[in-house]
Amino acid sequence: MTMPDSLYGAVMLSLIDFFASLVMITGIGVVLALFPLLNRIGKVDEDALRKSQH
């Protein structure tokens, strides 16, 4: 089902899109908030990476 090509469709599209975008981007924010947990896995040796240029 797609939006009707009318003012009603434009308003509905806008409302759904705006709030869905807000929810989705909040979800990305939540994922990013978990990123510090990655540091429990270990540490990347940046010097070693810099030396091993390909």
Partner: peptide
């Protein structure tokens, strides 16, 4: 990555998209 709560502003600042969309219609 350092400040995930500010990510929400990336969506909040997009109201203009929809105002213009409705205006265009």
């Amino acid at each position: 990555i350092a400040n995930p709560k500010l990510v929400i502003l990336g969506a909040a600042a997009h109201l203009g998209i929809f105002v213009a969309l409705i205006g265009a219609k």
